[in-house]
Design a protein around this nucleic acid. Structure first.
Length: 447
DNA sequence: CTAGCCTTGAGA
DNA sequence: TCTCAAGGCTAG
């Protein structure tokens, strides 16, 4: 069931612009997998729903405390408060204890007195704890909500733009693409100042962080919410496994296949940026330019997320892909070496921290140095914002002193990303455009 | 923590 | 479009 979704989503006619503009996500829902089983708790739970409706008419009382009930909660008619109580406590592992005989009367008045008996009664009346969404299901649900929320925003915004009609006829996207040769990707990124520090090790002992809470920043509520939302978004798009990836090594045997296999990453990148308000604030041309400029870096950064240092492989949904395929596919040994070295060093520090990856991803998206950008200052300001956020995050998670080491290290790695993607773009020049998916052609300026 | 209210996605 | 049943938020 899960594996055969690859074909429909590569419908060849879809351009980046269309992807960006479309209120829906083409087949992205399928790609991310968040919409299917995980968010669908109803499947095995509503067989009895017809009886329930009848029952509920006469049972408007909470089965647990007798308070007014609105309907079924976790498979029993209960009031809001028992619902919330059950949600909070049923999954919890910490055992409560009754201070009396374990048979306390639970009613509207007394329900607060003995959590133990209340919970017991919840179970007795048939509330089911497996109907409480677990961590993954909750994340998926939140991602879905977020997705829809942003979709609505984009839609609303789109309507505004159309009514103020200034950009319907003029934007010839295909023109824009053909005008920009592949070399532009790297060309005008000013030669990074320090090729020398390529190997700046970051020796932070993350297992030994300072005890004193004073040594950590406390994130503001809005910062932590924002980071949380971004990370969820990242997890549901860029960081999720691609079940259409082929770990079969044959699929990586030519560069073309390698490029095509990155298409899904690109689609996810588009899906990701579409949900970022800061990104949607940019003009359409800048959106496209920014997107194109960060594609290779994104793919490379993403490869770090899936990299396993111990095995020297990339982990995909379908298994492990040894990094040596890169050597085979491209014939560039130094490319292979620098890429894996990059993965290893960055992975050492980032490990599986999605917040860090998310913020780094955002920093590369809002890169004011990219080609063909109009509002560089704006983009730079946005980038600053994410750099600050990353700094704050590091200070909150790893203490002020560690953050002081980590931030420059991470930024350094981001600038190395530029060099690395330049190397990769050289390889892309070998690509035979006729065999490449259209979206990839566009996004990599190979058209 | 509790409990009430709100927002949502899914399904009828 | 409506209803149901999840989770989230937050004043108390």
């Amino acid at each position: 069931m899960a594996g055969n979704e690859a074909t429909p989503l590569t419908s060849p006619e879809i351009s980046i612009k269309e992807c960006l503009l479309s209120p829906n996500d083409f087949d992205e829902a399928k790609i991310s997998g968040i919409s299917d089983s995980s968010t669908d708790p109803s499947t095995d739970k509503d067989e009895t729903s017809s009886n329930k409706k009848k029952k509920i008419k006469d049972e408007k009382r909470c089965r647990v405390c007798g308070d007014m009930a609105l309907g079924y909660n976790f498979d029993a008619v209960t009031c809001e408060s028992c619902k919330a109580f059950f949600r909070r406590n049923a999954r919890g592992s910490k055992s409560t204890r009754c201070l009396f005989q374990g048979n306390c009367v639970i009613d509207v008045r007394t329900r607060r007195f003995c959590p133990h008996c209340r919970l017991q009664k919840c179970f007795n009346v048939g509330m089911k704890k497996d109907m409480i969404l677990d961590e993954t299901e909750r994340k998926a649900r939140m991602a879905k909500v977020l997705e829809n929320r942003q979709k609505r925003q984009v839609k609303a915004k789109g309507r505004e733009e159309v009514t103020s009609s200034e950009q319907e006829v003029g934007t010839d996207w295909s023109e824009l693409i053909t005008n920009t040769p592949v070399s532009n990707f790297s060309e005008n990124s000013p030669t990074p100042t320090s090729a020398s520090s390529e190997h700046m090790p970051c020796k932070i002992d993350l297992s030994n962080l300072p005890e004193d809470r004073e040594m950590y920043r406390k994130l503001t509520e809005s910062e932590s919410v924002f980071i949380k939302e971004l990370t969820l978004l990242y997890e549901s798009t860029l960081a999720s496994f691609t079940d259409s990836y082929h770990s079969d090594q044959n699929n990586y045997s030519t560069i073309n296949q390698l490029v095509n296999n990155s298409e899904i990453a690109v689609r996810r990148l588009i899906k990701f940026v579409k949900r970022i308000n800061d990104f949607m604030r940019l003009s359409q041309d800048d959106q496209i330019a920014a997107l194109k400029a960060c594609v290779l870096s994104t793919i490379l950064l993403r490869s770090v997320a899936f990299y396993s240092s111990e095995k020297d492989v990339w982990i995909t949904a379908k298994g492990e892909v040894p990094t040596k395929i890169l050597k085979k596919a491209t014939g560039y040994i130094s490319l292979h070496d620098s890429h894996t070295r990059y993965c290893r060093t960055l992975k050492d520090v980032v490990q599986d921290n999605h917040e860090m990856m998310t913020l780094m991803q955002l920093i590369i998206i809002f890169n004011p140095e990219g080609p063909n950008l109009a509002s560089r200052t704006l983009i730079s300001d946005i980038q600053d914002h994410y750099i600050t956020l990353l700094k704050h995050y590091l200070e909150a998670e790893y203490s002020f002193s560690n953050a002081k080491e980590m931030l420059p290290f991470l930024l350094q790695k981001l600038s190395e990303l530029k060099e690395l993607s330049e190397e990769h773009s050289k390889v892309l020049l070998q690509v035979n455009p006729t065999e490449i998916e259209p979206l990839m052609l566009e996004v990599l300026n190979l058209k």
